[in-house]
Design a protein around this nucleic acid. Structure first.
Lengths: 142, 142
DNA sequence: GCATATCATAGCATGGCACTAGGGTATTGT
DNA sequence: ACAATACCCTAGTGCCATGCTATGATATGC
């Protein structure tokens, strides 16, 4: 029941961009250093986020990445889905392409996984990047 | 964000044993056929469940497996933990042995994973094998 | 004592993960 | 113009967990 590092690192990076939202593009190297990640690996992750339409980029010197829309409009669930694929504790209850399970009609344990999937999705979609920034401010005040 | 087949198959097997609770030991082969699983593979899974104290066994002819206690006393969370290890979306928030994350104090994204872990644990611990058996009876009535 | 079961260990192919390597292309400051 | 800086893209690679299979030993009922 574990996330890969893609979702783990990716959310860190997105949170970093959210905290710097509005101050122009941030270079990949800056994010990587600040969040303590391999910059080359992070490059691939952020490419996925870009293709999912969550971040935009500017090439060339002084270029970098920035959020495609404001932090309050980006849910944690969006980030996770972009990096880890559709939410699905087991294949036969995947959010997308439910898979061909010919026991689906009468399989009782399947109902467990449906509840897990929905609970997970609801939780991840209830938190936005803005929420995290807010929390960061509060913690720094102490 | 996916379960391995261990938890998937394992719960199926435990549900099968729960439905036959009280009628003596059930042979592995029977469970495997009924739930459409590789019997040799299932053998390893049920060994883990036995070591976790969730099922008991009787050797020899007419032997087999049976639940160590009544279905209402076994939570889905117990089964999953026995087969998949402690619940932990990412390593640094594992239920057991939280891992050495030196950013734990100030890492904001970590709070997300704590909530995921707790939500998941709460959900899985709120469902017992007896609940599943009850649901199975209801569905058959239709 | 034989058929039927559980028990235990070992091995093995596959695939995904977590990177690394090495190039190309666009933009900026001088 | 031209370097420096950054994004962009594709391959490749070592490692480890997963999902089994194989083989044999041990225990029990009839």
């Amino acid at each position: 029941m574990r996330l890969s590092t893609r979702g783990h690192y990716g959310l860190k990076a997105m949170f970093d961009l959210a905290q710097n939202y509005g101050s122009g593009p941030i270079s990949l190297k800056t994010v990587a250093e600040r969040q303590n990640l391999s910059d080359h690996y992070l490059e691939q992750l952020i490419a996925m986020l870009r293709k999912a339409g969550l971040v935009k980029s500017m090439r060339g010197a002084k270029g970098g990445y920035f959020l495609a829309r404001e932090p309050s409009k980006i849910k944690v669930g969006d980030v996770i889905r972009a990096l880890e694929g559709p939410i699905a504790p087991v294949h036969c209850v995947s959010e997308k392409d439910p898979g061909s399970c010919n026991e689906a009609d009468y399989c009782i344990t399947r109902t467990v996984w449906v509840r897990v999937r929905d609970g997970l999705a609801e939780l991840l979609d209830s938190i936005t990047l803005a929420d995290l920034c807010l929390k960061a401010e509060e913690t720094n005040k102490c």
